[in-house]
Design a protein around this nucleic acid. Structure first.
Lengths: 261, 261
DNA sequence: ACGCCCTTGTGAAGGCATTCACAAAATCGA
DNA sequence: TCGATTTTGTGAATGCCTTCACAAGGGCGT
């Protein structure tokens, strides 16, 4: 009973890039979603100074099964050495290249409320090839203020700036009511990839990718599983919290592996 | 080329609740993830005063294919009327019941930075059966402050309050470095459902559900697709933005349907 | 009452993704 | 040089989910 896996799977943007980009065998959506996780795990290893890693231990760090990891990596080519493992730096670079993280991409962030500010401040942004090109908001109270070295622009300037800065990816962090409108304007200005935090299903033309992060949905999914848990086993539950409290940091393999399905 | 579908699918927590809860046929994870979306679409219809809806139009509103929607709903039982459609209010209630949204659940939020504040302020929280029972932070500067009618508690009180308030679901919105520690303490205090915003793979015992919201991963997936787009068709791209700008609000069915795969 | 039309609910088929399990490759020690 | 050992890369099997396509069911007009 764990989320990690499916979480990634469902995340995949849809089909149709399948026939694109060269004659190499197409990379499944589910795999693309996991590459990001491997990337993070590898970054961790680099910092620890580990130069080589086996599929088994990298899989453990990423919370997946090792066969899956090897199959995922095999879509990128053969970068492992049998009997040894993968070169951490090399693999990291290959994944970065595959995800297109080497060319940096201009990102526009629309909506500078708490969420927007949290996103703007997220370190993973700058460090991973994403460069915030512009911040927008509709509220006159925040327009003009400085945030992370950028001035917040009025959303009326959206089309103009998006075109000028060649923004490829936009992040929508505005209230639900304004999201579709912002989305339409982004698309009209040439944006083809959107990350949407507003709780609405955006309508877009077919050539635009939308990914949605939906807090309410996440909570409701947890609620579903939680209600099933309490339904059965009122006793098993009691056993867990009273007799067998989970001891953090026990280093037990069965524990750290739990996320791997 | 659209995200919606897979996004949901991947979201599903894993297996093993399959055999649980009654003799009814088990609800697939992918379906559970979409129920939340249907719920939102239905809420919209209720506000518009629409009393009955066909699978076709509800599917359009939710951005999925109508056969999928019908199959999803069929897991809940037979609440539609052939030749007519679904009663909006009834269906809404059934979905709420299925997701366990009727009994309200105590939620603890750990980490009250920008992200935490955004989450605490999210309206969908209170209105949908989730009740924030406690806010925690480690920073003395914010501990004691008032937020949404709740006082921010020091994270040292976590175990104590979580047990006392019978918190079922916890939301982790702390920096990566502190996340595993907070997670361990939550699990030790009896929490079995966790929504994690920190960019780390949490290790948890098997009976705990973890769902992760990963901004960096989302961005990287968009990046991947975006780089494929610019790789092929430098010209098709030009055609889109110059000759055929997307006209918002055209009401074109092919547009609003784009999200449905 | 009856037949027409609409929409649901669902077997069956097909497509992806995960998992299994093993042959192929590479190192290391003797 | 050779065999033992380790770990990758991948065909094959399995399983889940989606999509198709249609029979069954229900309202409505006449």
């Amino acid at each position: 009973m764990t989320a990690q896996d499916d979480q990634l799977d469902a995340v995949g943007v849809n089909a149709d890039q399948r026939s694109a980009a060269g004659a190499e065998r197409p990379i499944p959506d589910a795999t693309v979603a996991r590459l990001a996780v491997y990337l993070r795990a590898l970054s961790g290893l680099v910092e620890t100074g580990i130069a080589t890693v086996s599929s088994e231990s990298l899989a453990a760090a990423a919370g997946v099964n090792s066969a899956k990891l090897r199959k995922d990596l095999s879509y990128l080519g053969s970068y492992g050495v049998r009997g040894v493992g993968y070169d951490v730096a090399l693999l990291l670079e290959q994944i970065r290249a595959t995800l297109g993280l080497n060319e940096d991409r201009a990102v526009a962030l629309i909506g500078v409320g708490h969420l927007g500010q949290a996103l703007a401040g997220y370190a993973g942004f700058a460090t991973r090839g994403f460069q915030i090109a512009a911040l927008f908001d509709a509220d006159p109270a925040v327009v003009g203020s400085q945030l992370r070295g950028l001035r917040v622009l009025h959303v009326d300037l959206l089309e103009q700036v998006v075109r000028a800065e060649r923004v490829a990816i936009a992040v929508i962090a505005v209230p639900a009511a304004g999201a579709q409108d912002v989305c339409n304007r982004l698309v009209a200005a040439g944006v083809t990839s959107i990350l949407n935090f507003a709780p609405v299903v955006l309508a877009v033309p077919a050539h635009v990718d939308v990914r949605k992060v939906d807090l309410a949905a996440e909570m409701q999914i947890l609620s579903f599983h939680d209600s099933r848990k309490s339904a059965r086993a009122e006793d098993a539950q009691a056993r867990f919290s009273d007799e067998q409290p989970f001891r953090p940091g026990s280093g037990d393999a069965s524990v750290s592996m739990a996320a791997a399905k």
